[in-house]
Simulated scan of single mutants.
Amino acid sequence: MGMSVTLAAATEDDAERILKLQYLCFQEEAELYGDYSLEPLTQSLAALRAELAEGLVLVARLGEEVVGSARGTVGEDGTAVISGLMVHPRLQRHGLGGRLLAAIEERLAAERSADRYRLATGHRNERTLRLYRGWGYERVAVERVTGKRSVVTLEKVAVPVKEPVRV
C-alpha cells in the first residue's frame, strides 16, 4: 500500500528541505540555458527563511519527505506573485504541480485577498509553460535576462473563493 502526497503550509523546519529540493528541481532549467546562476540555484538559506516568514509557502509531502513546494505573496494592488513551484523529478507528470498551483491560488485568494495571479518561467521551459496555460494563464510579457535566456510572465484573474481552503 503506497502513501499519498499531502499538501500543507510550510514551517521553519522545512526550509533546508525546500532549498535542497529547489536545487534538484532547477537543474533541468539551468541546463536548458547553460546558466547555473539562476536565482533558485543560488538562493541562500537565510533568503528562503525570509520568504517563509513573509509569504505563503506550501509543501507537498510524501511521508516525511518534501517532494514539492510553491510560494506566493500578494501586493497592495491585489496581485499575487507565485514563485518556486517545483515537484521532485521522480513525481513529475502526475498532477502534483497542478495540485500545488491550485492550492496556492486558493489560499492566496482566501487568506490574502488576491484578485489576480502572476508567475514567470524561462522561455524554453515548454513543460511549465504548458502547465500554466492549461490552468488559464496568459502571457503578458517577455523580458530578455541574458543573451540566452528570456523570462515569460503570465497572468490570470482570480476566481472568487466561496469558502476557506484548508491545507
Rank of each mutant, 00 (worst) to 15 (best):
R124K: 15
T11I: 01
R90K: 14
A109L: 02
A70T: 09
T121E: 03
G63E: 07
D13P: 00
E28M: 03
G122M: 06
E39D: 11
G72V: 04
V167K: 07
L58F: 14
L7A: 06
R107M: 13
R118K: 11
G84F: 10
Y23A: 14
T128A: 15
T79I: 11
S44M: 04
D35T: 09
D35S: 12
T11M: 08
T79R: 12
E28F: 01
E31K: 13
R107L: 13
S44H: 05
I104K: 09
G98C: 12
L24F: 01
E31V: 05
R144W: 07
E105G: 08
A10R: 07
R107T: 12
R17A: 15
L154D: 02
L91K: 02
T11D: 10
V157Y: 00
D115E: 10
E12P: 00
L100F: 05
L119I: 04
Q43I: 15
E106W: 05
E76Q: 10
L38E: 07
R112T: 00
G95C: 05
L62C: 05
E64G: 11
E106K: 05
R124S: 04
R139T: 15
V142T: 12
G55L: 03
Y117F: 15
Y117A: 04
L101Y: 09
T121H: 06
P40C: 09
P164T: 13
A120L: 09
V87R: 07
A103K: 02
E65K: 11
L58T: 09
H88T: 03
G134V: 10
T73Q: 13
E12I: 01
E51V: 12
L154F: 01
G136S: 06
A158V: 04
A102E: 13
V145S: 05
T6I: 13
R17F: 04
G2P: 15
L154W: 01
T128N: 15
E39T: 14
G147C: 00
G2D: 14
D13G: 14
T121F: 11
R112H: 12
L24V: 14
E138R: 15
Y117H: 10
P40E: 14
A80K: 06
L32W: 10
V57Y: 04
R61H: 08
R127E: 14
